[in-house]
Amino acid sequence: MGVGKSCLLHQFTEKKFMADCPHTIGVEFGTRIIEVAGQKIKLQIWDTAGQERFRAVTRSYYRGAAGALMVYDITRRSTYNHLSSWLTDTRNLTNPSTVIFLIGNKSDLEGQRDVTYEEAKQFADEHGLMFVEASAKTGHNVEEAFLETAKKIFQSIQDGRLDLNAAESGVQHNPSQPGRTSLQGVSNEQQGGKDSCSC
């Protein structure tokens, strides 16, 4: 059983819960167009397999990601304990401006909780990560996690912290696209590697 990365992505792109969610093979792709500050933004999301045997190859998907969503399962402490190793990978393989968002999935299973909100929140604060608890099953906070990540990336671009011209920024600007009159910038961004522990 995984922490639910693919289920979160499926809930975000299809607004449906995948009840039977087998282990992802390699990498999956998902896209959704959202609007941030009146700008159309296309999110390209890479959903990387959590199992160890895929880790060497999936690492290459971190490069060029503007954001990363790191997921653990609130009902299984072991998945939370692995976070620092995933975070090290993410930090080493992305650039300093990459937005990292921590998601504690399966918040609907309150009775089986094994990691408190406070503890995870503290971990997130210490490492400068954004954080929510969410449920791919009920949809709770799923939209928020993705949208907040996108907003943060958008902000980084506006503040000039993220250089659109850098090859590794994970963001493509497309000013010539009809219907996308943009004064401020982005029309297109990639959001990468939802990495995590699946144990």
């Binding site: 990498v27 792709f29 390209q44 060497a56 190859v57 290459s60």
Partner: peptide, 17 residues
Amino acid sequence: MEDVLNDVVSSEDLKKF
């Protein structure tokens, strides 16, 4: 690189493995 059929490996990765 929008889907699994268009996803192309980087030459560094190919060389590495």
